[in-house]
Design a protein around this nucleic acid. Structure first.
Lengths: 187, 187
DNA sequence: TAATATTTTGAATGACTATTCAAAATAAAG
DNA sequence: CTTTATTTTGAATAGTCATTCAAAATATTA
């Protein structure tokens, strides 16, 4: 009954859904088996273990996130306008019923024990995001201002990722962002 | 060999340490038994179950947090100066080797599934913190500005609680806070 | 087609999970 | 001291966990 090798990306996408929502510890390989339709042996042959699958899920999520950020920043009328759009997008996400913050942020907090590889991977990707913002801002500002504002953006993104669980908080968040990021061209 | 009833607050403090560091799912009752020296039966008689113990731990953490915030805001030369002091304090915490963010924030993110009681409790306490900041700010600003700035403060606190895992980021965070909260009297 | 290399199967393993409860120990009340 | 109410004990329960592996099925190569 065995079939051709399964579609790796599809399986990783299912793993993203599961791990993102429930976190590492609260997700079981049994749930992975259910979600993917694969048997344990296949999963372990392909990903070695739970940590291996989680790593690939996290990496794929990060890669998609960064690609999407670049796309929005590149297609916006200005870097600043693109950043506004990213924030508005984050706010929209948070108003969904099944909001689950950001996979990278959740992993950074959940697996924060000393030297945990997955925590380190999440942190590395988050630092890449900040560097990305800084490099875009350097088109418009000095390196010093760009760095400072990139950090400020990250603080606000993290803020939204936690604040966003509050119900009916969209307008509050928009006001808070205007207050903290007055140099952006809010609508 | 049975002794007098154990010291409830001491036990809850041990539970705070454990749950705060590892989260709900990654903490086992076996670890609670080890950390407290109590036997399972005693714990279950006193707290009903893991969730009950976690709830009391979270409540005690929140109560201490709010009390500490009030104390700093009350004893500072001004509300604004007190807020600066709170941020500097958060930054100092984040530079410790065993930093674990904020128990309320971690719980809000970990247990975010629909209608989870512990998630709701954490959220409720975090919203109380924002209300607390707003009420203090109303001594100095209009209600509208106070609300907006209280939200901005919460966004920055959440930001620090996530950003703080980055090594050697203290000065970056200070710069980011200055950028986003220019109305505070930074040193 | 035959031989070899991959991949899937899925029950089994042993460790760990939260929780229970009757018995024993202690404290409190009479 | 005696009786009653609390509290502690700690082994036991039933379930779930991540992981393994020999056998079967399929794909690939010769």
């Amino acid at each position: 009954m065995a079939k051709a090798k399964f579609n790796r990306e599809e399986v990783i996408d299912k793993a993203i859904d599961l791990f993102w929502q429930h976190g590492y510890s609260a997700s079981s390989m049994q749930q992975v088996v259910q979600a993917t339709g694969l048997k344990p042996g296949s999963i372990y042959l392909a990903f070695e273990n739970k940590e291996g699958l989680f790593r690939e899920a996290l990496e794929r999520y990060a890669q998609k996130s960064i690609a999407r950020t670049r796309k929005i920043l590149d297609s916006a009328p200005s870097v600043q306008a693109g950043i506004c759009q990213l924030f508005e997008d984050n706010i929209q996400q948070s108003s969904k019923e099944d909001y689950c913050s950001c996979f990278l942020v959740k992993t950074r907090l959940e697996l924060a024990a000393e030297g945990n590889d997955l925590h380190n991977l999440a942190s590395e990707k988050l630092e890449m995001m900040e560097a990305l913002f800084a490099s875009y801002l350097e088109k418009e500002f000095t390196p010093e201002i760009s760095q400072r504002r990139a950090t400020s953006i990250m603080l606000h993104i993290f803020g939204i990722r936690v604040y966003g669980y509050q119900k009916k908080s969209e307008d509050r968040m928009r006001q808070g962002l205007r207050e903290g990021l007055p140099w952006l061209p809010w609508p």
